[in-house]
Simulated scan of single mutants.
Amino acid sequence: MAQIRDLMTSNIETLGPDATAQEAATAMRRADTGSIPVVEGNRVVGLITDRDIAIRAVAEGRGPDCSIRDLMSADPVCAYESDDVESIAQRMAEAQVRRLPVVDQNEQLIGMISLGDLSREGKEQAASEALQGVSADTNALLDA
């Protein structure tokens, strides 16, 4: 059974909580990603997403110099490097997220895992199940 450490992306951008929204957006563009782990030391304290910047910053009239500490999702759900694909897919579905920070047994950030990582590695069933969970509330809204 494949473990997350075999599928995750290990060379990732990180930011500290005092980085600005503009710095986060620039880092996302550079890394071609929609989310970046926020770390203090090497411990994950949050996750900043392009949606956080759009919804929590721009929509609220905050400027590009606002701290991501005020925008990030604190204490994000994480994956452990030894987790299997199916448990991570389930965790993504339950948390309704497309990406998870990956930590080691000491809670140190070592990478990120995404639905794309799961599907690229031939784990389409697990990725599909996670996507169904991520999309569940959206589908309910569309049906209403």
Rank of each mutant, 00 (worst) to 15 (best):
I36R: 01
I36H: 01
P37Y: 05
P37Q: 01
V39C: 05
V39H: 01
E40N: 04
N42M: 06
N42C: 03
N42Q: 12
N42F: 07
R43V: 09
V44K: 04
V44N: 00
V45T: 02
L47V: 15
I48L: 14
I48D: 04
T49N: 04
D50T: 08
D52W: 13
D52N: 11
I53D: 02
I55P: 00
V58N: 02
A59E: 04
A59Q: 06
A59R: 03
G61V: 13
R62I: 03
P64A: 11
P64C: 09
C66P: 00
S67L: 11
I68D: 03
I68A: 02
R69Y: 15
R69T: 07
D70F: 12
M72H: 07
S73D: 06
S73T: 15
A74E: 12
D75R: 11
P76F: 10
P76H: 12
V77L: 10
V77D: 00
V77A: 12
C78H: 01
A79L: 05
A79R: 07
A79F: 10
Y80D: 00
Y80T: 03
D83T: 02
E86G: 01
E86I: 08
E86Q: 11
S87E: 14
Q90F: 13
R91C: 00
R91Q: 13
R91F: 08
M92E: 07
E94C: 01
E94F: 08
Q96A: 15
V97L: 11
R98L: 10
R98C: 04
L100N: 05
P101G: 01
P101D: 06
P101M: 06
V102P: 00
V102K: 00
Q105A: 14
N106F: 14
N106D: 15
E107L: 10
Q108K: 12
G111T: 04
G111H: 06
I113Y: 05
I113W: 09
L115K: 07
S119V: 15
S119H: 11
R120S: 14
E121W: 15
G122L: 14
A126N: 09
A127S: 12
